[in-house]
Design a protein around this nucleic acid. Structure first.
Lengths: 254, 254
DNA sequence: TAGTGGTCTAGACCACTGC
DNA sequence: CAGTGGTCTAGACCACTAA
């Protein structure tokens, strides 16, 4: 039944190296033998091993650094969920900080995040959703989230200046209950959330910040918060290395 | 502000070709000039152009066929949403057929789908979720969905034999209201749905069926339907080319 | 049979790391 | 300075398509 597809040599080599990693021969954090050594071991050329490494890099399994060598990545896959329960403690842009930390701690990882608040010209897609002119100023709350001190997510929350300017939302700390509580205090309680998910190559800037290979992919999640009157009060753009995360949604039937 | 990162030559060439596609010089469906011609045009070698093509192939922008040449892909990005309204016409595994067709028709694409029903040994992950032994038989409703006669999604719905065996769910047509209506008729109305989303390389089989390049990625969405008693009555595994889709979820606040 | 893309080789040069 | 990975070249062989 299984159709035989003879794989090209570089994919076979990639398979062998992948197997060695999964078998524990090259444990997480360890340095894989160099391309030259593997080339002689597998009776092939360095170019072929290099291409095999490229396959495994794109999968997020290994990381290569010029001069240093190639190491096996350590971080496990991080779950992220939207459930009724977790929705209750939505606090700040991105994930609820509480749920982000809880999930990382369950995996035995440390968590940390940093916020930078700024007035910036609205990116085109954000301006479109917020219903403002391209490039007009909006409030941006840019958050970086770390697992074991490795940056695993960028989340920037964009808010209209008319709503957020000069309020607690323009401070680093948004106070008890977080961003959505402050919006509610001001009469802009979100009534509906939408998240749009797409997969794309990282921008150069994202690749640098998240230490990603250009052949890897990011998950982009754009959350829109809308009031009962249909007013968009927040657009939150989240970017995560696609191989690093598993995201889930739960809802009641009917 | 923008940090200059000098790109390697093959990425620059990829950028030039991408620009030519987006400018309309190589319109959707047309054949891109051959690697040899582009190599001389850009004063480089065929290997470099080949690598540039690999970048664009991985993005889903072009498709190469040995002997035939390289063509610009035609299908636009397909949206897929879970909203309150659409949940009401959930019919069959995967998307509601109705909503799938409606979304494709909005884009001016034809839609079609085919189902094959079978008893199969449960895959490990499915067995785990259904709470049955690995490899024990379950009912599989495998659906293929086409846009403009191109396969764009595989969706296989797994149901416990004790529930679905010998019922209408083992027929190709599940009748009015579809799968979830039949489950409700039998006293197994789903009360809660969960979808788990991950991004991974396609298996060989998926790559063949979906005509994907091994360097492209699939979105895997595993939906679990649970009754009010906590019984899992359906596991639906959906696989879509990641570059081809944008999926969205909407929910009410609180 | 001519032309396409897929792969592999052998060798080279480079940027970078760590000693 | 030796060793690493990143890239590029020139050439070759192959599987496949279309005329």
């Amino acid at each position: 039944m299984a159709l035989e597809t003879p794989q090209p040599e570089f994919r076979q080599v990639a398979g062998l190296i992948r197997a060695s990693i999964q078998s524990g021969e090259y444990p997480p954090g360890s340095v894989v033998p160099g391309e030259h050594e593997l080339a002689t071991r597998y009776k092939t050329t360095r170019a072929t091993v290099n291409r095999a490494f490229a396959v495994l890099r794109a999968e997020g399994l290994i990381r290569s650094e010029r001069g240093r060598g190639t190491t096996v990545n350590e971080l496990p896959i991080i779950p992220s969920s939207r459930t009724k329960r977790q929705r209750r403690d939505f606090r700040e842009s991105g994930e609820s900080r509480g749920s982000f930390e809880a999930e990382l701690n369950l995996l035995g990882l440390s968590s940390r995040s940093e916020v930078v608040v700024n007035e910036v010209p609205a990116p085109d897609d954000v301006a479109q959703i917020l219903g403002v002119a391209d490039g007009s100023p909006v409030l941006a709350r840019a958050r970086e989230m770390f697992a074991n001190d490795i940056l695993v997510m960028l989340a920037t929350s964009y808010l209209p200046l008319e709503i957020a300017g000069g309020t607690e939302l323009a401070q680093t700390q948004t106070g008890p209950g977080g961003l959505y509580s402050r919006l509610a205090d001001m009469g802009y309680a979100p009534a509906e959330f939408t998240e749009e998910i797409s997969v794309r190559p990282p921008t150069d800037e994202e690749a640098r910040a998240l230490r990603m290979d250009p052949d890897q992919r990011v998950l982009q999640i754009v959350r829109t918060a809308t009031t009962g009157h249909g007013l968009v009060v927040e657009v939150n753009k989240m970017v995560k290395p696609a191989h690093q995360w598993k995201i889930s949604y739960t809802w009641a039937a009917e």
